[in-house]
Each structure stands twice: as structure tokens, then as C-alpha cells.
Amino acid sequence: MTMLFYLAGAVALISTISVTISTNVVHALVYLIISLLAVAVIFFVLGAPFAAMLEAIVYAGAIMVLFLFAMMMLNLGQATENEEKAWLRPQLWVGPGLLILALLVQLVSVLVTQRVDVVPVEVGVHELSVLLFGPWLLAVELASMLLLAGLIAAYHLAKR
């Protein structure tokens, strides 16, 4: 299991970096889907099977398909890809890269101070559902309102 965690982590890392440096939109999307699926595996390892399912179905499935549809509507061709290559000049990465490095160093330095080994305990769907529709009911309602607002906004914005 530990092995699976590191493997999936590596896959997620590599595919995510590929998204960041890719110039083709559709390729980047596929890398992103791989990254999400790898994260879903990590969830499974960490004892969150429901979250893993949702990650695969909703994130890697629904949301990414939405992306794909949008890309099809935009119909970005070779011209965009060339443009993308021209924009990604190496010197562009220096400033943000240094900043990001600083941030990463900070985060890691905070995280490595203590070492706790986690023995994952599986949290089942039933337990989660009881929590969701118990103490978190209000949050669920708000989330549904948010989705409705997103739906209306998307409909309105994309209208011709």
C-alpha cells in the first residue's frame, strides 16, 4: 500500500508538471485527467473510497468533459499551439519560479518538523452520509445553491 501511494504520487506529479509545460490544450487536458485519477488512487490508499469515486467520476469525468466540450467550441488549432510556444519563453519562468521556490521551501520546512505515521482507517459511505445530512446539512444546502447559481451564470454568460 505504501508503495502504491508513492507510485501514484509520482504519476500525479509528473502528469501535473506536464500540464504546466504542455503547449497543446488537448494534451494538457489528458495529462490533467491522468493526474486526477492518480490523486483518486491516493484517496483510495488513504481510506477514502467515496472521495476517490467522486474524484474519478465528477472531477476526471464530468468537469474534464466540460473542459473538452469548451475546447471543441473554441476550436483552437495549430496557430494557437505555435502562439503558446512563442509565449513560453524561458526567461518568463525566472521571476515566478523564484517566488514559487520560496513558497515551496517555506511550506516544506513547516511540514517536515514532525513525523507522524498514519495508519489509514476507512471511512465508509454510510458514515459520511450521516455526517453530511446531519451536522453539515446547511453546508450541503449552500453548496446546492452555489451549483444552481453557477448553472444560471454559465447559461447566461455563454449565451450568444
Binding site: M1, L46, V116
Partner: peptide, 12 residues
């Protein structure tokens, strides 16, 4: 179940 270092998950 074998254990997974907590901070490694967070670092990822």
C-alpha cells in the same frame, strides 16, 4: 495496514 508518512501526503 502499512502506514504512510503523514507529512509526505501534505508535501505532495
Amino acid at each position: 495496514m502499512p502506514s504512510i508518512p503523514y507529512e509526505h501526503g501534505l508535501i505532495l
